[in-house]
Simulated scan of single mutants.
Amino acid sequence: MPRHKGEPSPVTLLFDLPVAPTVPVVGEAAAYPVRRIFCVGRNYAAHALELGNAVDREAPIWFNKAPAALCLDGGAIPYPPGTESCHYEMELVVAIGAPAFRIAPEGAMEVVYGYACGLDMTRRDLQNASKAKGYPWDTGKDFENGAVIAPITPAAAFTPEGQRIALTQGGAVRQDGVLSDMIWSIPELIADLSRLYHLAPGDLIYTGTPAGVGPVAVGDVLEGTIDGLTPLRLEIAQAE
């Protein structure tokens, strides 16, 4: 077909990029495509204190993980490279399903598509080294398989209140809390994040972890649960 005057020339790409990662949805044939991953730190007071951090109630502490860090649960991941202290952090994940910009907390739940169990895997030694120098946390937080997620449950089937959130490591309970222990509630998190970004369908929010985080080792089986959501399971395999 001839090109009309003024139309841009078609662009030839040097290479193909992977399509957006997707997450299964409970009861749906279609999957949820992931656009961005936002994470909030120190959102449970006991967890902040166990790592020697002050409890900050002025504003949420945000960091990001690339979509390439996403990993579906149910299988095994190699022990991450570049670290000798990789930690698990069990979290509730919120999946955004509608645009939101400068939204009020009162309307924030209307933009939620669903919820899932997730793990914010952390290269703790790299994170601590960065913190000591006043550097960003990127290498400690954003790496392949660093954002684990179970299937998403639509919001119509789950209302986050005071449900238990827990994680076992090799069958032993390591984390055990309730969602109502969050410093910043889900509506408050969405509202605050929407001041900084134009939120849109495909955005995930990892909402913080309760106390009890710790290191993983090769051969570990991690199982995370939040009452009412599909549980999460992950095995740690040999490093590559």
Rank of each mutant, 00 (worst) to 15 (best):
E50G: 03
A98I: 08
D138Q: 11
P18H: 07
F143A: 06
G82L: 09
L167F: 06
D16L: 07
V40G: 00
R42I: 01
A155W: 13
D181V: 02
G212I: 00
L70D: 03
M90Y: 11
K131C: 01
S9T: 08
T139F: 15
R124K: 04
M182W: 03
D125K: 05
P78G: 09
D192W: 12
A76I: 14
A30R: 09
E161W: 13
E161T: 15
G140C: 09
T139Q: 12
L126I: 00
Y32V: 10
P80K: 08
D142H: 12
E223I: 03
L167C: 09
L167V: 03
G27S: 06
G228Y: 06
D181R: 00
W62I: 14
V93H: 02
G202Y: 05
E188L: 15
P81E: 03
V221S: 08
R35P: 04
P201W: 05
D227G: 09
A68T: 15
K133Y: 10
Q238I: 14
G107T: 08
I103T: 00
D138L: 15
F101M: 10
A108G: 13
A104C: 13
L179F: 06
A31I: 13
M109K: 14
C86G: 01
A156T: 11
A59V: 15
F101Q: 15
D73P: 12
G177C: 15
E28M: 13
T225N: 14
E84V: 05
C117M: 10
V112R: 04
I77E: 00
L167I: 00
F38A: 01
V55I: 11
Q169E: 04
D125C: 03
